[in-house]
Simulated scan of single mutants.
Amino acid sequence: MPEGHSVHRITRQFERNFVGHIVHASSPQGRFAAGAAEIDGRRMLQARAVGKQMFLEFEGDVWLRVHLGMYGAWDFAGDILMDATIASANGRIGQTNQRGTFIDSPNPDAVVLDAPVFDRAGENSLTSIGAPRKARLRMSESEKDGGALDVFPPEPVGQVRVRLLTDTVSADLRGPTACEVLDPAQVEQVVAKLGPDPLLDDGPEAEEQFTRVVRKKPTPVGLLLMDQNVVAGIGNVYRAELLFRARQNPHTPGRLVPEEHVRHLWRDWAKLLAIGVETGQMMTMDGLSTDEWRAAMANRADRHWVYKREGLPCRVCGTNIVLEEMGARKLYWCPYCQA
């Protein structure tokens, strides 16, 4: 399931390519024909992401809400204007000169890369820096560059729930859990039920809300982090990594988690979410050298502490990482470091 960083990145694509433009909407698969008709011909006014949900506003107080769920993805095609942050592929863009773009990673050790590093599994294969290109681009949990585009708009591929189209760019949505047209009051009702998102709520009030809610719950903290009503955007990968980084047992009831641990989880989530939006990859390792950073950007196995490492020795203590089920999702943790 796409986690919060992916949805924020997709929203930035809409901000760059659709906001301010008249949008034509259709439902090639037919399941969203009525909703598409409500949107068709309206100008997109803004794009918002809150946790794992995104909201596109159109003229006339009309909103499109999308939750990608387990299988949803957006395919962009056409003269795609890449958001500078998205296009950086591996970190914040530094400066551009005749030799190209220098990429300064969010690593506190100030690793500087003179070229993007591409993930072997295609988690982030974006290469364009801020310039339009006629191409295909899939955006979900794994972002993949589909290469050059010969005809625009391209023929819909597969079960496209909704196609949004301007004169230069198309966006095709497949497999979402939710796709619906709402009015402003309905949007606010949905957002009001969600927990804070540190990219939107970076003040002390959001931290206090998260801390207060967690510390009054008898529910295991490993479940609370996945509850979008408690905190928005955290999925299976970030849950495992945040808990390990805090050396927190996932089974501890929220009300028994020390307050300093709860606050650490919130601040660490804000940090990791920002890195994820900047790089497109869920980098959760700190203190890496330049070579280690490159290796981690190229291979997911090198950028996580516990996720997908069941049966392998903990990177800190050597105890085998445990895999179990919690909340119908896989949980990875170290029974020694997080005892």
Rank of each mutant, 00 (worst) to 15 (best):
P253S: 07
E180M: 05
V191F: 05
A47Y: 10
L243E: 11
V157A: 15
Y238Q: 12
I93Q: 06
P253G: 07
N236K: 08
M139H: 04
I86N: 15
E325S: 05
I321F: 00
K52G: 00
N320Q: 11
T284Y: 10
D114T: 13
Q159G: 13
M139D: 01
S88D: 08
E155D: 14
I39L: 14
D227G: 13
R212W: 08
A110H: 10
G327F: 02
T127N: 07
L243V: 01
T252R: 15
I80K: 00
Q29P: 06
A240P: 04
V19F: 08
S88C: 06
E3D: 09
V112E: 13
A232R: 06
L164Y: 07
I234L: 09
M285S: 06
A34C: 04
P258V: 03
L224Y: 08
V230F: 12
G146R: 04
L126V: 10
T177G: 15
N97T: 03
G175V: 02
A206E: 01
V191P: 08
T127H: 13
P28K: 03
A84Y: 08
I275Q: 07
H261N: 15
D114I: 09
M285N: 13
G287Q: 10
K271S: 13
G254Q: 11
A33V: 06
V23M: 01
W266E: 01
P176S: 12
T211V: 02
L288H: 03
R303K: 03
F210T: 03
F76W: 02
L173H: 02
R133W: 12
F118K: 09
T101K: 11
G158T: 04
D109C: 12
L265N: 02
K330N: 08
G146C: 04
L137F: 10
G20I: 01
R136D: 00
E57F: 01
K134W: 02
D201M: 04
T252W: 13
A171F: 03
P116E: 06
R215T: 08
V23F: 01
R163K: 05
A192L: 08
L113V: 04
D61I: 07
V187N: 12
V237M: 13
I275N: 09
V316Q: 14
C334T: 00
L224N: 06
T219M: 11
F32Q: 00
I275E: 11
Y332W: 08
E278L: 13
T290M: 10
A274Y: 04
D167L: 14
E292P: 10
A185N: 15
E207D: 06
M326S: 06
E188A: 14
V181L: 07
L200V: 04
A240N: 09
R255Q: 15
R43H: 09
D172I: 00
V111C: 08
H67G: 14
F152K: 04
C334L: 07
G233Y: 01
M82E: 09
I80W: 00
E208D: 14
C337H: 08
D227N: 11
R263G: 09
G122R: 00
L126N: 10
G147Q: 05
L256Y: 14
P108R: 10
A115C: 04
D79M: 14
G51Q: 07
Y307A: 04
S125R: 09
W269S: 03
L265Q: 00
V160W: 00
L182H: 12
D109L: 13
M282A: 15
D172Y: 02
T252Q: 15
I234C: 10
A89Q: 02
M226K: 08
T96R: 12
N299G: 01
R300L: 02
P116T: 04
N17T: 01
R120W: 00
